[in-house]
Simulated assay, not measured.
Amino acid sequence: MSRKNLAGLSAVLLLVAASAAEAKQWKYAGLHPRTGQPGDGLCHLETTHVHSVAPQHADTLYRTRDNVYVFIGDPTPFGYEGPRHSYYGHHPVVLNVIINIDVDVDDVEYCYHDGPHYHAYEPPPRQEFVDKEDVHYYAGEYPEDYRRENPKLVRVNTVYRNWNAPRPEVTFAPPPQYRGPIINVGVNVGVNVNVGRPAPPPPPGRDVIIIRDDNDHDHDHCNHHNHGKHKKHKNKKFKGRN
């Protein structure tokens, strides 16, 4: 082979290699797991950046905006030590707020974590939440998009179950404004996560934890002799945050 042909072939190979390297890069924005394995920690770059590692569990832990992966899950299993905000149940997540960009219309997705969990971000503005004992509950309506994606995206709970992540301690009933699924996390009882439908009865011989609001204690026949006053939980309502 002549030197001219050899040089041409080398140039082609370099272009192919460069294209292959570029094709193996994935765009991320904001805090996210480095590899998807808890022991590998988190990347803390807030601006849009690239990695040569594909996002693991991308269909449940991430949402995409303009081909950029945005992590919306609970960062606790990955060694996150920053400010944490306690949530309960399914709720909206606004991608443009998480990655701090200005848009004309909010890019709203939904978190499908069952029961109590953490996020690194506060409840987004222009979404309706109520607080009870420092736990955020979504108090708005669930749209059809949320219901349609529920069977697929609720699998995020299977992913996190393998990591045994710590959760906020919630020992009281959700506020009445919350319309999402109520899950007794860590209890070996079958539950139905479809919004608006009750959980099936537990199989015989299994333990059940009943979460009761303090205001309901006066109706507990086991405690009807206790006439002490109970402390009422304080609900804070946040609607139309700016």
Rank of each mutant, 00 (worst) to 15 (best):
F71Q: 00
H119M: 14
D114E: 10
Y142I: 13
H91C: 06
N223G: 03
P83A: 11
A58Q: 12
A7V: 15
T76K: 07
Y121F: 15
H233A: 01
A18F: 12
P151H: 14
G140T: 11
L6R: 12
P92A: 06
L13P: 05
G30L: 11
R3C: 08
P204K: 02
H91W: 03
D218H: 07
G205L: 01
H230K: 01
G186W: 05
P176I: 05
A11P: 03
E122K: 09
A20K: 06
G140E: 09
N226S: 01
V135R: 01
E128P: 10
P201M: 08
N150E: 11
R84D: 04
A17W: 13
T48M: 08
V208C: 10
V68K: 00
A21M: 11
Q25A: 06
N215R: 07
K232L: 15
T158M: 14
E149L: 13
N157F: 04
F238A: 09
V156R: 04
Y137Q: 09
F172E: 00
V68I: 04
D102Q: 15
D66W: 08
N5Q: 14
Q56H: 12
V208R: 10
E144T: 15
G89Q: 11
G205W: 03
G180N: 02
V135L: 02
N164H: 12
S19W: 10
W26C: 02
A7F: 12
R148Q: 12
D131K: 13
I183T: 04
Q177F: 06
L6M: 14
I183M: 06
G79R: 06
V208K: 07
D40E: 10
V187L: 02
R84I: 08
A7T: 13
L42F: 00
A173C: 10
